Structures are given as structure tokens and as C-alpha cells.
Simulated assay, not measured.
Amino acid sequence: MEKQAAIRLRKLIVLALMVALDVVLSPLFRIEGMAPMSSVMNVIGVVLMGPLYGTMMALTCGILRMLILGIPPLALTGAVFGAFLAGLGYRYGHRVYWAVLGEIIGTGLIGSLLSYPVMVWFTGTTNGMYWFLYTPRFFGGSISGSLIGFILLKKLMKVSIFSEIQNWFKRGAVSHDVSNI
């Protein structure tokens, strides 16, 4: 029983560290209208922690960026769907490139399209907005961020502590060795 409590605490500590990294790094490595660092952290987070914790990380980061940095609800629509699909992609595809593809589709396509109605609600107007308004920027940020995340993961997966942390979050029978890239 104590071992399960210790592992649960370790998971929360890793989740808190990933949230802190995302919240701090996202505004530092931001291109106007794009947040590639969120995609970097989403891809690394879901490979490290799985879809549930990765999505919780993205949701928490989006809320914190909205509260602390004054970013509109785009912080949520852009990150949460990408993290969720990236997590599912990695869990069922068993390869990092499936996580990358999930992040690009979730953030670049789904997140960008859902941003339109959210921003219409948030601003109360449709002036100057259309369904694909956010799509080019979301695709640009998610593609560049996912590729950077992929490159970083190639290096991280060679570090023994990374695999050990993955095992704390492991539920399925996915092997987490370097060959899974």
C-alpha cells in the first residue's frame, strides 16, 4: 500500500514539473499567434505520462496561461485536443510519430476549428472571424513544436530515468525502449 502511495506521489510530482515547464517555456519560445512549445511539451508529456496525465497537463497549462498571462481561451482549444490525440496515438500506435501525428491533427485541425466558436462566444462578435482563421497558425505551431518534441524525445528515451518514469505511468503492455521511436 505504501508503494502505491509513493508511486502516486511521484506521478503528481512529475505532472507538476511538466506543467511548470510548459507554463514557463511557452511564453519564452512563442511566435506571435503560435505556441510551438505547447506542442513540444504535449508530445513529450504524453509519451512520458500517457494520455490521461498528458491531457491533464495540457488542460492545467491552458488554464494557468489564461489566468497568469491573460491568453484567451485559445490556450485551451489549442492544447487539450492535441495532447489527447497525441496520447491516444502513442498508446495505440506504440510509436512516437503517432503521438506527433495526433498532436498535429488535434491542435492543428480540431483545436483550430473549435477555436472559432469559442472565440465568437468569448468576444461576442463574428466580425473579421471565419472558421479557418486560426488553422494556419495552429498548424504551424503544432508541426514545428511536434517535430522539435520528436527530436528531443529521441535523446530523452536514451536516458535511463526517462524510461523509469514512464514505467510509473505505464498501464498497457507498451514497451518503452529506444526502438519505439
Rank of each mutant, 00 (worst) to 15 (best):
F81A: 14
Y97P: 03
W131E: 02
I110E: 03
M41W: 01
K170E: 06
C61M: 09
E32S: 13
A58F: 06
F81S: 14
K154E: 02
W121I: 12
G149P: 08
L64T: 13
N167M: 10
L101Y: 00
T60N: 01
L12H: 06
A5L: 08
I165V: 04
V118F: 09
K3T: 03
M37V: 11
S115P: 00
I181W: 08
A86F: 01
R171D: 05
G140Y: 02
A83C: 01
Y130E: 15
G140A: 06
N167D: 13
L25C: 15
I44D: 02
C61P: 00
L21S: 06
K11E: 06
S144L: 13
R91E: 10
F81G: 15
M56L: 10
T55Q: 03
M56W: 01
I165Y: 08
D22Y: 13
V118H: 07
M66C: 07
T107D: 01
F138S: 05
G102L: 03
Q166Y: 11
L153C: 02
G87L: 07
L88V: 14
M66A: 13
N167V: 13
L48C: 03
L152T: 06
P36K: 05
A5V: 07
F122M: 10
G172M: 10
V80Y: 01
V178Y: 11
V19C: 08
P51N: 04
G78D: 06
R65A: 13
L114D: 08
L12A: 04
V23A: 12
S146Q: 00
P72I: 14
R91D: 04
Q4S: 13
G50E: 07
I63S: 04
